[in-house]
Nucleic acid binder design. Structure first.
Ligand SMILES: [Mn+2]
Ligand SMILES: [Mn+2]
Ligand SMILES: [Mn+2]
Ligand SMILES: [Mn+2]
Lengths: 148, 148
DNA sequence: ACATTAAGTTAGACACAGCTAACTTGTAAT
DNA sequence: ATTACAAGTTAGCTGTGTCTAACTTAATGT
């Protein structure tokens, strides 16, 4: 007999809904590194006038070759412009992305702090959370952070 | 002259602090798949009495070989036990991890809903956010979700 | 019993993101 | 002008996570 476990009594709907959620997370992770890099590059340029690979490496916590390879990919994707042995620049697309990431990052951090978290933990958690916050959620975060 | 931009006027401290944050995010991502799998396996066992690779694949939104390879890794890490052509089981370690992930997942979802998000978006965002929530933050989430 | 079919496995490809080691380039000081 | 050193690059390794194609096994129904 081995009782019939179709595991589908409720139709494939809930299974599909879940799959979509995980796919969305994987999609977010595919964009994550690009977002963090352009955000950091924008900050370095604002602060020092230039973004050097060595400074990116120190702040990302990775080695120089890792930064080089990542920057090559970002250049391929049209987010940064670079020339051998020079600092990195953002393309218009890259600058736009950086702007929106910076804004989102700030909102998430402020939200967490407003919720009662210490600033350092807020920064740490925000660095991961920011990439998984939908527009709707971000708006709720913004709202909660401001009005309170 | 090419003015001296050491990019280190504030010492390497802030750079290091940032690096630690990104390293923490990478660490979270290393554990993420394992967490999602054991959580899902526990749910399938609770609901159907067994967790079959095909059901994992449907719900994770990936193909069967992907599930197989991932389960091999989880077995290597001592989180699941498996035999060829059979359903998957959780080891005691795996069951413990699943329990804590399930709890955390629930808290994050309820928090987002309490904040005003619709349930489906809450589920979607929670699937990513859950892996980046520190104990401290989780406690704040729990608190906010309950008392309100 | 046997055939059909669903589930599972294996092999092999690809891209990404990290690393070390070894090399090249640019520049700042002498 | 030379040199020394910091920064950048290149090559090549590893492990993960995804896929398709082709195969094997187990279960179902007749
Ligand atoms: Mn981030
Ligand atoms: Mn950020
Ligand atoms: Mn998840
Ligand atoms: Mn993440």
């Amino acid at each position: 007999m081995t009782e019939i476990r179709t595991n589908d009594e409720n139709g494939p709907r809930p299974a599909e809904a879940r799959a979509e959620r995980f796919q969305a997370v994987r999609e977010a992770h595919r964009n994550e590194l690009a977002e963090d890099y352009v955000e950091l590059i924008a900050e370095l340029i604002a602060q020092f006038g230039e973004a050097r690979p060595v400074d990116l490496a120190a702040r990302m916590g990775v080695t120089a070759p890792t930064v080089a390879k990542t920057l090559d990919r970002l250049a391929r994707e049209g987010l940064v412009a670079r020339a051998p042995y020079r600092s990195v620049f953002l393309t218009p697309d890259g600058a736009r992305l950086a702007e929106s990431c910076l804004r989102r990052h700030e909102i998430v951090v402020r939200f967490l702090i407003r919720l009662g978290l210490d600033p350092e933990t807020a920064e740490k958690d925000a660095e991961g959370i920011e990439h998984h916050v939908s527009d709707r959620t971000l708006e709720l975060f913004r709202s909660f952070a401001e009005c309170s």
